[in-house]
Amino acid sequence: MRWALGLAFSLMTINAQGQKHSRCVVDDRDREVCLGAPAQRIAALSPGATELTYASGAGDQVVAVVSYSDYPPEAKEVQSVGSHTRMDLEALVTLRPDLVIGWTTGNPPEQLETIEALGLPVFYIEPRGVDGVASVIERLARLAGTESVGQKVADEFRKGMAEVEDRYQDRDPVPTFYQVWDEPLMSINDEHLIGQVVRMCGGANVFGDQQRLVPRLDDEAVLAANPEAIIAGGMGEENRDWLTHWEQYDELEAVAQGNLFFVPPSLIQRPTPRLLEGTKLLCEKLETARERR
């Protein structure tokens, strides 16, 4: 209670300053978030949020991150306040952030509500498309006062993704299964950002019509879909074990053609500018599958 009251007093003092020059943006929950001055002490509550904040040019203002915030390398030196699923709120408050970057579907709602109740501005992110990633960077830059850096990064990302799409989207379709998790077995539908990447590369997502953004499956469903290519991340940047599992099924077209492909998860499963690198890699894998026909 003492730390909460102390924070509330500090926030009233901060909020009383600089209100004439508010910086306002709309977050991914359609809420307006306004700051009286550029954020100087930012807490990023997911690895993706950390990357996006650095990409916006505000890396020097980051004072708190969560576990697995490993990019860029300097983010590993910032104090961690727990994991994205369970933050240490007392440690977070002690760092006196003036902006918190929350992950809409990844952070515990009750903890984000507590943070808001204490008076801390929370900017919710949930980029669902290429432009969504670029837009988050632009809006974070607005809140942090780093507009010139953020705009350049956002523009380069949009341009790079458009070039990849122009190159690959009209290639012969490759029926593709993207594995996003192993236990339980999970994939993505066409509305998911990764599903959009598969489509940009000329892939045909075999579970694209599923209603859930991240559908749960079993081996039998994959066998029935019989994808020509299987693409997986893994539990680490070099862990290909998820692909090894599928080698037992000789009847799978992807196995018969040798089309079991690994893409480092941080390049494709985080909605950050590095998605461009991951997209290029995924497109190259599907092009390899075409060449093996």
Rank of each mutant, 00 (worst) to 15 (best):
R2S: 14
A4V: 12
G6S: 12
G6A: 10
L11Y: 00
T13P: 00
T13K: 13
N15C: 02
R23K: 14
D27Q: 10
D30S: 15
E32W: 04
C34F: 09
L35M: 06
G36H: 04
A37T: 05
A37R: 12
A43V: 10
S46V: 08
S46L: 07
P47E: 00
P47M: 00
P47G: 02
G48Q: 04
E51D: 13
Y54G: 06
G59T: 09
Q61Y: 10
Q61I: 07
V63K: 10
V65D: 03
V66S: 06
V66R: 09
Y71C: 02
Y71Q: 13
P72N: 11
A75M: 09
K76C: 01
E77D: 13
S80E: 15
V81Y: 09
V81N: 07
G82C: 08
S83V: 10
H84Q: 15
T85W: 05
R86I: 03
L89D: 06
L89F: 07
L92S: 03
T94G: 14
T94E: 13
L95N: 08
P97E: 12
L99T: 01
V100N: 02
P108H: 05
P109Q: 12
L112V: 08
E113A: 14
T114K: 14
T114D: 06
I115V: 15
L118H: 04
P121V: 08
V122S: 06
V122L: 10
V130M: 09
V130P: 00
V130L: 10
I137T: 05
E138P: 05
A141K: 01
R142S: 09
L143P: 03
L143G: 01
V153D: 01
A154I: 05
E156A: 14
M161E: 04
M161A: 06
R167L: 11
D170G: 02
F177V: 09
Q179Y: 08
V180H: 04
W181S: 07
D182P: 00
P184G: 13
M186N: 03
I188F: 04
I188A: 15
N189I: 08
H192N: 13
I194G: 01
G195M: 05
V198R: 01
R199Q: 13
G202I: 03
G203V: 07
A204G: 00
A204I: 00
G208Q: 08
G208P: 04
D209N: 14
Q211M: 10
L213P: 00
E220P: 07
A225L: 12
N226Q: 08
P227C: 06
E228K: 11
E228S: 11
A229T: 03
A229N: 02
A229R: 02
A229H: 05
I230A: 04
G233N: 08
E238Q: 15
E238G: 08
E238L: 12
E238V: 13
D241H: 15
T244S: 14
W246N: 05
Q248S: 11
Y249W: 15
L252W: 12
E253D: 15
A254N: 05
V255W: 11
A256K: 15
N259W: 02
P264E: 12
S266Y: 12
T272A: 12
P273L: 10
L275V: 07
E277Y: 02
G278V: 07
T279N: 02
L281M: 14
L282S: 01
C283M: 05
K285T: 03
K285Q: 15
L286R: 03
E291Q: 14
E291F: 00
R293M: 11
R293F: 04
